[in-house]
Nucleic acid binder design. Structure first.
Lengths: 336, 336
DNA sequence: GTGAAAGCGCTAACAC
DNA sequence: GTGTTAGCGCTTTCAC
């Protein structure tokens, strides 16, 4: 049975409130006798191996210091760059004495009791939330920060500067001499802001040059069929993420086509493995860890409700992207 | 202000315990008046949007239904196959009405208060724990299950059948005609059971054939130097994980050497991307999701303390491996 | 600076 | 089957 403040109080011959205050460090140490008493209390606490009971504290303070990470798609959370986001998020939350809970919120997730029962003080999301969840959070007035998603204009969010990212990717291909360039999104990626914005940057670059912004949102087979047909096939392809790049790169290899000779390929996210692809992948990177760190700060801030002060709550952050040129892009093949 | 059982009790004109009982479903419904009253209570609870306060419940029940995932190395948790383990773990825990907390336990993790303060009922680990953490858990009598690690013989664990996995990998290479075969572990991988056991299976296969079980535990540069020297270099390499395979495969490509023509390569873990490598990687796979699922069941069981009954507590599970033969292995080059 | 006491919302033991 | 009551261990007020 772990020691409580009462055990300490009894042994020290003081009241429990004194113990609580001392252990909280809420004592000035003006008077000499007080300081001595405080030292003794601390000593006793130490001897007894005292740890504050966090369940009791949570009950009393009416908060758990827990943040829920809400998600519907397992693969999306752990694959790709989101692992880095998650790392940054957890670490930063711990610094602020908070912790992260993994909460699937889809059909089988059984999220209602957990979230609305007050087991978390706030949430963070990686993906657009199901409507039911969003309404639930709103009713419960649970603060929420969206990471890599701005599907709900009322919620604070952190997104990647997708427009600039895809713009620079397209520009890179154009500079190499490509004219038939496409943007490819796998059909399993649900429509959301990132797709739109990556298209927008791409489109801008293309129309600046009077080129057609080809767009595909389909299964890989379909995309591959387009890439392997003769004649006016694309010579450059910007992929929505490194996943598409992997699939396409692999298919090209199967068809005996070379990257970058036959097709220049650009990915998105710069996940770890892409620099070891054959050839290493040119990709649009960004500081994923920072997204997590910033996200943690934002949710913590909205918990403490600093928004009411002079500084208004930060509601939108845009993380810069950077094109990382590696071996998967080159001048297009000569027209034969 | 959310409704409590007292609000419901007042409105229904009954006591709070009756409300609690009814909402818990702990009522037989024998008597007619009771059933009616129960229905009315449920109705009122519904109208008031009642949710049980989990903080209060946790305080009262002296448990949070939270399980901590303890780790020291961020990359290790989220990279590789552990993402699948994690998915299985979270989902299964949710089925049992528990949830998962991510808890870094290294120097900056600040884990003590969280774990020893009773904010979790048990733990799961992916890696050997720092001694301080292990002692802390033991003192606090916190149940713990180790996943993919058996460094502490006193703790229940789930491991992969590494011996058989590496044995079959070696056997595969031998059958293809290889004689100079090595096992490679990256130097960043700390010595632990998996390394030993993968070596053991490998060694057994090699000595059965009177071959030398070459072993390297070093940086990739060093390994690559060995692989690219002339003469008696290895023709087959079994890698500790898919990471090593990726690094080595990439280096071979840089040196203009072909896989599998110049070197047969085998990975471990069968992570998603390996089947899209060029060439697709032959690898030792296993059901990572199942490890998570089983792990969840084990920790839940140890929480409810079923071990005291007739069935003894399960303390060790071995997950089967399977060699997945793809394009990265072939007959060795002819001796020139 | 200190102590007494109320309260957080639920569970569980007990008397009716 | 129902109501009463006593905790759970902390925080927070309010006298002193």
């Amino acid at each position: 049975m772990p020691a409580t403040i009462y055990d300490i109080a009894r042994e020290a011959g003081v009241s429990s409130s004194t113990v609580a205050r001392v252990l909280r460090g809420d004592t000035k140490g003006d008077r000499k006798d007080s300081a001595e008493r405080a030292a003794r209390i601390r000593q006793i606490a130490d001897n007894l191996g005292y740890r504050p009971n966090l369940r009791a504290r949570a009950f009393s303070e009416q908060r758990t210091k827990g943040i829920g990470l809400l998600y519907t798609d397992d693969a999306w959370v752990f694959e790709g760059v989101n692992d880095k986001v998650l790392q940054g998020l957890v670490r930063e939350l711990r610094k602020h004495d908070h912790h992260l809970l993994l909460v699937p919120v889809d059909a089988g997730g059984d999220w209602e009791e957990l979230l609305l029962g007050g087991h978390v003080d706030g949430c963070v999301t990686f993906q657009p939330l199901p409507d039911a969840v969003r309404d639930g959070l709103r009713n419960a007035a649970l603060p929420c920060v969206m990471l890599g998603d701005n599907s709900d204009p009322e919620m604070p969010h952190i997104v990647v500067d997708d427009v600039t990212g895809s713009y620079s990717a397209a520009r890179h291909l154009i500079a190499l001499g490509h004219r038939r360039i496409g943007l490819y999104v796998h059909k399993t990626v649900k429509p959301h802001c990132s797709i739109q914005e990556r298209f927008q940057g791409f489109e801008t670059a293309m129309t600046e040059e009077g080129l057609e912004p080809n767009f595909w949102h389909c299964a890989e087979d379909e995309m591959i069929a387009v890439l392997t047909r003769g004649g006016a096939r694309p010579t450059g392809l910007i992929c929505y993420s490194d996943l598409e790049s992997t699939l396409i790169g692999h298919a090209m290899w199967q068809y005996g086509l070379k990257i970058p000779n036959d097709l220049s390929l650009i990915g998105f996210n710069d996940k770890f493995a892409t620099k070891y692809m054959t050839p290493p992948l040119t990709t649009v990177g960004f500081d994923a860890n920072k997204i997590g760190t910033l996200g943690a700060e934002m949710i913590i801030r909205s918990l403490t409700g600093e928004s009411s002060k002079a500084a208004p709550a930060i509601t939108s952050v845009n993380v810069k992207t950077q094109l990382i040129v590696r071996g998967s892009t080159a001048a297009p093949p000569r027209e034969s």
